[in-house]
């Protein structure tokens, strides 16, 4: 493990709760680790597990998934579906030989800027302990796949 390893993390937020928590952390000038780069989705239910795999294979050392607390989803219950997929995804990651701890689900309401900040920093530290994933490099040696996987083949 490198001495000064700075993890790169992709974070998914939902438009209604956790993205607003990130906004609130900003407005309140709460400081947190700079390693997480956020993507806004409308809902954590939008999170296709392949997004996580894509991020990990493209050089991210960890992926943070955030959404509204159970029972507070803007879309009523879609965060439960994110939870289901998250649990399945962790098993898939294990099967692929990736530490399942590299992916973490965090609930944060729009009022929880402080929680968003502290959870982010804590997750960065967890990934720092795990060390770099180095999949990005392995991927670089593979032929570049610019097209998304043709899913018709699966359907056929």
């Amino acid at each position: 493990m490198t001495e000064n390893f700075e993890p790169t993390i992709i974070g998914f937020t939902c438009n209604w709760c956790s993205y607003r928590a990130a906004d609130l952390a900003g407005t309140a000038r709460m400081k947190y680790a700079p390693n997480v780069r956020l993507i806004r989705l409308m809902c954590s239910g939008r999170l296709d597990p392949t997004f996580v795999l894509r991020a990990l294979s493209s050089g991210a050392d960890g992926v943070m998934i955030t959404g509204c607390h159970p029972g507070e989803c803007h879309y009523i219950e879609q965060n439960y579906k994110a939870l289901r997929r998250y649990l399945l995804l962790k098993r898939v990651l294990k099967g692929l030989g990736i530490e399942p701890e590299r992916v973490k689900l965090i609930w944060a309401s729009a009022a929880e800027g402080a929680k968003f900040a502290s959870e982010t920093t804590a997750f960065v530290e967890e990934i720092r302990k795990l060390g770099p994933l180095n999949w990005g490099k392995a991927r670089d040696q593979l032929p570049v796949i610019s097209e998304p996987i043709q899913r018709e083949e699966v359907a056929a």
Binding site: D48, Q78, R151
Partner: peptide, 13 residues
Amino acid sequence: QGCGTCVAACPAG
């Protein structure tokens, strides 16, 4: 409402 849960779920894309 545009949550996108079905988009993520569709096995056929």
